[in-house]
């Protein structure tokens, strides 16, 4: 029978906290850049202008279909060699996950936008709005509301995918857990606690999103019934 002993984990909990901060920093950066970039990609892909739509489509499909680990290695190892640019692990990870998540967010945005009834476009144009005005004032606010569940899902995926940054020695939660496990010879305890931290943070955040969704539901149509 295995004897659980969390003493070593508790004594070194500072390491895990630092790791959590690292995870949150990289996830936060990816969200902060990935969301606006994703919106731009989605709007470009939906644009009637082919010279905007096609490159946007290519970027989205490329980053959706290649493994994030390959992208990360490419930015961290290949780019410095090819272009003589030195990157910190944080910068390489930030670039990778900003672009990678923007490709996924672009598809979430696009799905939300095309789900809005044609009549909404027509009503906006009938009162004399131009396409960008209609998009900004009428279509997007409704689309964003419908997107919240898919957006939450993608953000959770993003946070878990950032564990890959450990491979380029960025000190995220998983990296720190690994260090701690090797130092204390208590991998079972360390990884159990690590899983619980991920669970607590992600579950807590998704509860917050649900609360926001419920508040938005007050004004008319919504995704929460």
């Amino acid at each position: 029978m295995y004897e659980w002993d969390f003493t070593a984990v508790i004594e070194n909990s500072g390491l895990l906290w630092q790791g959590l901060l690292g995870t949150l920093a990289i996830t936060g950066t990816a969200l902060a850049f990935g969301l606006p970039l994703g919106l731009m990609l989605a709007l470009s892909r939906l644009s009637p202008r082919k010279w905007l739509a096609w490159p946007a489509g290519f970027i989205i499909e490329f980053f959706r279909t290649t493994p994030p680990l390959v992208q990360l290695f490419w930015f961290f190892f290949a780019l410095p060699i090819l272009m003589d640019i030195q990157m910190t692990p944080y910068l390489a990870a930030a670039i990778t996950f900003s672009i990678q998540s923007s490709a996924f967010f672009a598809e979430v945005f696009r799905a939300g936008i095309v789900s809005i009834e044609r009549g909404q476009w027509e009503a906006a144009r009938a009162i004399g709005m131009q396409r960008p005005q209609a998009m900004r004032r009428i279509i997007l606010p409704q689309a964003v509301k419908r997107m919240i569940p898919a957006f939450t899902e993608r953000s959770i995926e993003l946070m878990k995918t950032t564990t890959l940054v450990a491979t380029v020695s960025y000190a995220d939660l998983l990296y720190q857990a690994n260090e701690l496990a090797q130092k204390t010879f208590r991998p079972i305890e360390v990884f159990t606690v690590t899983a619980l931290i991920y669970f607590t943070v992600i579950f807590g955040l998704s509860l917050c999103v649900q609360a926001v969704e419920r508040r938005l539901a007050v004004s008319g149509d919504s995704t929460v019934r």
Binding site: G119, Q120, E122, A123, A126, G128, S219, D221
Partner: peptide, 18 residues
Amino acid sequence: KVRQKVGMVFQQFNLFPH
């Protein structure tokens, strides 16, 4: 510009729900 001078009412109302 033309659409601003021509009002339209639709079968399905098409009010802005938000």
